[in-house]
């Protein structure tokens, strides 16, 4: 189980590097989406491995509501470039 999680952490480092390097704001948002989803999936894996359902509920809420918040933020940032 540990090796799965360590592989997921290594995969998490890829979008973190992308957010650090890229100058385009949309690439940064893309990296944020990737990180938000990956951390939620990691939480789900941990909740299954520990058999702790309160962690699983938090992960599911973040996975669904976090994406709605991201849409809102993307719309606000889109209007900066238009005006």
């Amino acid at each position: 189980m540990d090796s799965i999680l360590i592989a997921m952490i290594l995969a998490l480092l890829i979008p973190i590097y992308e957010a650090w390097q890229d100058d385009d704001i949309w690439q940064t948002i893309l990296a944020f989406t990737s990180i938000a989803t990956k951390t939620s999936i990691m939480m789900l894996v941990i909740s299954v491995s520990r058999d702790d359902w309160s962690i699983g509920v938090v992960a599911v809420i973040i996975l669904s509501v976090g994406n709605a918040g991201l849409m809102l933020m993307a719309h606000l940032i889109k209007r900066i470039n238009e005006a």
Binding site: A19, I35, T39, I46
Partner: peptide, 15 residues
Amino acid sequence: VIRAILGAIAVLVYV
């Protein structure tokens, strides 16, 4: 946006 990334990682640590 990077503050949001920091928040996502902080959630993982807290959990």
